[in-house]
């Protein structure tokens, strides 16, 4: 048995294959250009090799900017008898790549919004989270309903004497209405990268469970 949870216009959504007992859920790392989305995935790929039976796919430009996405499937092992595979993606953050960003968002089940803590990136974060909201709407999804975790990345910049935004400011800018879980992190140093991942996986799985119970 195979259940597609897409009820409203059905743009994919998690796929639960009750015959082979596999669940596939899609989690997307979103955020402005250069905020550290790819660095998050690289860290996870490096640290969790045992749970990743695939090469990391990256479609990027020569200058290392993401052109389309980064991707690998992350094996959670068996949960209640199901083989759970989390499909991890990043989007390209640069403003000009909005059409490919939308494609990556198709069928998303959970989002990590990576914000850049550098003081001069403040506006870019705000524009990007608005862009996320708009792009989710295209798939009939509400930013207030989808499992979402915010990561305040690059906290380590303070040590280098670079001015960073304090967490209250970031919360106020990005999370005052949403009130979703948020973490301070440093993707280059690996601080809270795994914690962010665990939280979004947990929230995404809980949300899928709830949706499943609502299926007739």
């Amino acid at each position: 048995m195979y259940v597609g949870l897409g009820m409203s216009g059905g743009a994919g959504l998690a796929f639960i294959n009750l015959k082979d007992k596999v669940i596939q859920a899609k989690i997307v790392y979103y955020g402005p250009g250069r905020c550290g989305k790819t660095t998050n995935l690289e860290y996870i790929y490096d640290k969790c090799r045992l749970q990743i039976n695939s090469e990391m796919v990256t479609v990027k430009t020569q200058g290392d900017r993401t052109l389309f996405f980064d991707f690998f499937p992350f094996d959670m092992g068996k949960i209640s008898g199901y083989d759970v595979k989390i499909q991890l993606y990043t989007v390209p953050g640069q403003v000009k790549y909005n059409s490919t960003r939308r494609l990556v968002l198709k069928g998303v089940d959970g989002v990590v919004f990576v914000a850049d803590s550098a003081a001069d990136r403040r506006n870019k974060n705000i524009i990007s989270i608005k862009n996320l909201e708009e792009n989710l709407k295209l798939y009939n999804k509400n930013i207030r309903d989808i499992p979402l975790v915010i990561q305040y990345n690059k906290r380590d910049l303070a040590k280098e004497g670079i001015e960073i935004l304090d967490v209250e400011t970031l919360e106020n800018d990005l999370n005052s209405e949403l009130k979703v879980p948020s973490f301070e992190a440093s993707a280059v140093e690996g601080d809270n990268v795994i914690l962010t991942l665990k939280k979004i996986i947990y929230d995404t799985m809980s949300s899928l469970e709830k949706q499943l119970k609502q299926e007739p």
Binding site: Y2, A11, G12, L13, A14, F15, N17, Q24, K26, S54, E55, V57, F71, F72, P73, K85, Q87, K106, G107, V108
Partner: peptide
């Protein structure tokens, strides 16, 4: 179109990375 695998079959000699 979201990239999920619904069914996959091969002739036994192919070892491609399905999910990628």
């Amino acid at each position: 179109t979201a990239g999920n695998v619904i069914a996959s079959i091969n002739n036994g000699n192919e070892t491609v990375d399905l999910y990628s």
